[in-house]
Every structure is written in structure tokens, then in C-alpha cells.
Simulated assay, not measured.
Amino acid sequence: MEDILRPIYQERASQANTLGVLIINKQQKNTPATDTFDAILLILVKEAESPVFVKHYSYNDKKAALYMVTDQQLHEWLLLGSNKKIFDWLYNGKILFERNEYIHDLKTELREFPFNGRKMKMGIEFAKLIRRYMDGKAFFENGHYLDTYNHVVHSLHHLARLAIIEHGFHPEVTVWQQVKQIEPEILKLYEELVNSHEPLEKRLELLFLASEFLIHSKTKSGISHFVDVLSEKEFWSISELMKHEELLFYSVDLGMLLEYLIDKHVVEIVNIETKGQDIFHRYYKLGKKLS
């Protein structure tokens, strides 16, 4: 397939905007890494009109997909983990072209996983975990057990991803295989939820009790990045926090994270008077309890 695609990637490689080109070949039948295609051609560029551009090709009984991705979009995927296949593509793809060792440096960065990037990624993952966990609890208390189950499965997935990041690795497609080697107790919780013959309500009840401890054990590392931001000044409005460059990726989960940390006495509320009687602006500051 590489020979067939050569004219396509050679044309792209000759352009100054192109940073690197990789090809990812299907290794086994029905592998998820290539989305059923026989080959993926990944072209990384400095900038483009669209952050992601996709083309599909056919040759006899074969099919291939071309992905042209900007450097900014690539790093957003790596930070948020919103495109899990990208790790597989970067790790296992064959380098066809790179400018100034761009892909080599990228792989080194992924392998070494700089601490600052790891802290932000953990913060984003912890915020997602809290959102799913708290929403699941609310559904449980109202007797909506199937909706609870859905949120709890997602919260365990975020917990697993958080544990993997904490140990210095990037979560990949096979998250449960990764966490099995790192923190098997999280996998055990997941298996008990999915495989137990107990009534669903009982399974969920037991899981909330067990996961409460695990979430508590991850809180200090999970909020480290958020605490760093809060420490930058005395108190913040929610608008200021949402606009902060390093908190943009926390997105809709930021408000729930704040409420969780207020409940845990990590964040304190600061009420500032408005012109209206008995109405206050609600601001937030770092509390004293971080253990």
C-alpha cells in the first residue's frame, strides 16, 4: 500500500508547511487502530484552513485514509486524550518523512511526558471524573439506576486514565490492560460492577463506597494543577477561571469540580456585596485543607 500512496505523500512532503508524514498499516484483521482501513496516512502540518482534513482512497480491494492534522490540533488531542488512536499512530507508525526531527522530538516528548503537561492532563481527567461521579450519584439517589450505571462506568474509566497518567504514562486505547499492570484495584472495581450477579442497585451502592476512597486518594495529585492556578491571586470569579488559558480545557466540568472542592474544604467561597440588597457576588479562593 505504501508504494501506491507514495505519489500522494511525496507531494505533501515537498511542501514547507509539512512537518512529518507517517503510515500506519493494518496489522491484523479488524484492528481498531486503523478504523477498518488497510492503511492510514498521517500528515502533520504547521497550519491549515481546517485543523483536520480527511480523504479516502481505494485501490483494487484495498482502502486507505489520509489525515492531515495541524500541530495545534495534534497537541490538543494529546492533552485531552480525545483521539485515543493518535497515540497508536505515533508509536507504531512508520516515518516516511519528517522535517528537523519533528516526529522524533514528538515521540521523545510522549515518552518522557513532561511533568507540567502531566499535571494539566491529570487536572482535566480529575474534573471529568468528578463530573461523572457526582452526576451518577445524583441519578442513584433518584432511583435512575441504568443512568447511574452509565455514569459510573465512565467515572471508572476516568479514574483508570488518571492512575495511568499519575504513573507517567499516556492512556492509550487499551486503558484497562494498562491499568491492570499499574493499579489492579481499579480494574477489580470495574469487573465487579460489570460481572457481578448482585442486583444492579446493590452493585452501584457498593461501588460508590469503594470508589469514594480511591477518588480521595487521587484528589491531591488530581487537583495539583488547579491549585497552582488558584494560587496565582487571592480570589477568582467563575468567569475569570473559565477564561484562564490553562483552565480552558476543563470546560463544562470546571463548575462541578469547584463545588466538589468546596464540599471538601479545599476551596472557600468569598461573598462580595453587590448593589442589590442581600445579593452577593460569589468568588472563590484557595482554602487551607489540601491533605
Rank of each mutant, 00 (worst) to 15 (best):
K137Y: 11
G143I: 07
I164H: 02
K188V: 07
T174L: 08
H225W: 07
L241K: 05
I165E: 02
F235P: 05
K218S: 01
V153N: 04
F226T: 00
N142Y: 07
A163Q: 10
K243T: 12
F213I: 12
L209W: 11
I186F: 00
V152R: 01
T219K: 08
V227I: 14
H197Q: 14
S224Q: 09
A210I: 10
S237H: 04
I130D: 01
H167I: 04
T108A: 05
Y133Q: 03
T219P: 03
L162R: 00
E246I: 07
E183N: 14
S237M: 03
K121S: 08
D135T: 14
E141P: 09
E198H: 12
K243R: 13
T219E: 04
I215W: 00
L159R: 07
R203Y: 03
F226A: 04
S211T: 15
K180V: 09
E185T: 15
P199M: 01
H244T: 10
A127K: 00
L159C: 06
Q181M: 10
F115E: 14
Q177D: 13
Y133D: 01
K107R: 15
E245Y: 08
I164N: 03
L189S: 11
I124W: 00
E191A: 11
W176D: 04
E246C: 06
L146N: 11
Y149C: 05
E125F: 00
N116K: 12
L193A: 01
L110A: 02
E125L: 03
K188F: 08
K188D: 04
I238G: 04
R131S: 09
A127H: 05
L241P: 08
F113I: 08
R203W: 00
H157D: 14
T108H: 08
S155V: 09
F169H: 14
H151T: 10
V179Y: 00
K119P: 03
S221W: 01
R203K: 15
K121Y: 02
N142H: 13
R131W: 06
L206M: 13
R161N: 08
F226K: 05
E245D: 13
P114D: 06
E166K: 14
F126Y: 12
G136D: 00
Q178I: 07
F113Y: 15
L189K: 11
G136Q: 01
V153I: 15
L156C: 04
I124S: 00
N116L: 13
H158Q: 10
S239R: 14
N195K: 15
V173T: 12
P114V: 05
K218A: 00
T219Y: 01
V153D: 03
L193K: 07
R161T: 11
L241M: 05
E183W: 06
F139Y: 14
